[in-house]
Design a protein around this nucleic acid. Structure first.
Lengths: 148, 148
DNA sequence: ATCACTTGCATAGCTTGCTATTCAAGTTAT
DNA sequence: ATAACTTGAATAGCAAGCTATGCAAGTGAT
């Protein structure tokens, strides 16, 4: 039973993700950002003051991962966490001025990375590719329900 | 400047890779395997006794990552590392009987995971998708040469 | 033979992800 | 009001990546 890794979607998925991450890491390093913070920042740039729970729901990231990421972000002066006044369990996450200022350059960096990495595809292929990625991600498997 | 994360190839790449990893993790856990060992095992099942250097070259993984992965694999009884007799710097990596026996079930698990995750695509879409993944991975960017 | 260079691995230290567990704050039922 | 449950977040501990650095074994030039 042969297994050609370069025909395996999972193998290729991992490889491609590492390549993207590597590129984005380099591009946002000058901004003092790392890749893990990006998803949270995108949500907060859209809607500041979300709770940790809301971030987890919007990003398909585990709660513990989010908690750690936010802790690093707070350490690095990107956000401040404040207890909700109505519900003492809830942590609301607020962007610092610094994080707000990074929005433009950070998004530009991500778009550049995407553009460069997809430069080998035609416009049509790019649309196809994005559509297929979305489709695979949305596919629910019986055993392990995602996005239930 | 809006940034729709679900239109971003990099974002989707990361998300999809996490989904695949999650699925494969579950499938191979009963075998006592983890995802990080998979690439190395694939190469060694093909050619036992490769050097660490050769593994690194074949897998587009950093040397340090490979060293750590092999250390875990040795700890878990999947491989044995032995110094090359001709060149004292070289570590050759040899599969244990246990690792050899795992080939069938492990590959089956990976194939199942791929099949399930791509179940939402037609046969044609699957081919397209794999081809596009390969193309993106092979695309060289000016700044950071891969695969030079 | 020795000194400088190269090569192959290992180690240190970090991020990003996960599961499992714990803890405190709220809610509900009695 | 209290006991039991639920809910939001934090913590512990691990895997799998990475960069940077160190170190021992080989190679080459003088």
């Amino acid at each position: 039973m042969a297994f050609a890794k370069d025909q395996s979607a999972g193998y290729l998925a991992n490889h491609m993700a590492r390549i993207f991450a590597h590129g984005l890491t380099a591009r946002i390093k000058p901004l003092g950002l790392t890749t893990g913070t990006f998803p949270a920042l995108l949500e907060l740039w859209e809607t500041d003051g979300l709770t940790q729970k809301q971030l987890v729901e919007r990003l398909d990231i585990e709660q513990a991962t989010m908690a750690n990421t936010l802790a690093r972000m707070e350490r690095d002066g990107l956000v401040v966490r404040k207890k909700d006044t109505n519900d003492g369990r809830v942590q609301r996450v607020w962007l610092t001025d610094r994080a707000r200022d990074l929005r433009g350059p950070a998004i530009a960096a991500a778009q550049e990375e995407n553009a460069v990495r997809l430069a080998g595809l035609t416009e049509d292929e790019r649309r196809q590719f994005i559509a297929l990625l979305q489709k695979v991600i949305r596919t629910k498997t019986p055993g392990e329900p995602r996005d239930a």
